[in-house]
Simulated assay, not measured.
Amino acid sequence: MSKFPFAGEALKSLFKAPLTEKYPLTPKEAPEKYRGKIKFDANACIGCGLCIRVCSPNAITKLVDAVEEGQNITMKFDLGSCTFCGYCADFCPKNAIELTQEYSMVVTDKNDMIVSGSFIKKLPPKKPVPQKKTTENK
Rank of each mutant, 00 (worst) to 15 (best):
E32V: 14
E32Q: 15
R35G: 09
G36K: 01
K37P: 12
K37I: 03
K37H: 08
K37C: 07
I38S: 04
K39Q: 07
K39S: 10
D41A: 14
D41W: 11
A42W: 07
A42C: 03
N43T: 14
A44S: 02
G47S: 00
C48I: 00
C48Q: 05
L50Y: 00
R53F: 02
V54H: 12
V54D: 11
C55F: 02
N58F: 15
N58S: 14
A59H: 07
A59Q: 09
I60G: 07
T61M: 03
L63A: 11
L63T: 10
L63D: 15
D65V: 12
D65E: 12
E68A: 12
E69N: 04
G70P: 02
Q71H: 10
N72M: 10
N72C: 10
N72Q: 11
I73S: 10
T74M: 02
M75K: 01
K76A: 08
D78R: 01
D78N: 00
L79P: 14
L79M: 13
L79K: 15
G80A: 11
S81N: 12
S81Y: 13
C82M: 01
F84G: 08
C85P: 06
G86Q: 00
C88E: 05
C88W: 01
C88H: 01
F91W: 12
F91S: 08
K94P: 14
N95Q: 11
I97L: 06
E98F: 06
E98G: 06
L99T: 00
T100M: 00
Q101W: 15
E102R: 08
S104K: 13
M105T: 11
M105V: 09
M105C: 12
M105S: 13
V106D: 00
V106I: 05
V107T: 02
V107S: 08
V107M: 01
V107G: 03
T108Q: 15
T108H: 13
T108F: 15
K110F: 08
K110G: 09
K110Q: 12
I114S: 09
S116P: 08
S118C: 07
F119T: 02
F119I: 03
F119E: 05
I120S: 03
I120N: 05
K122M: 10
L123C: 07
L123S: 08
P125H: 11
K126C: 06
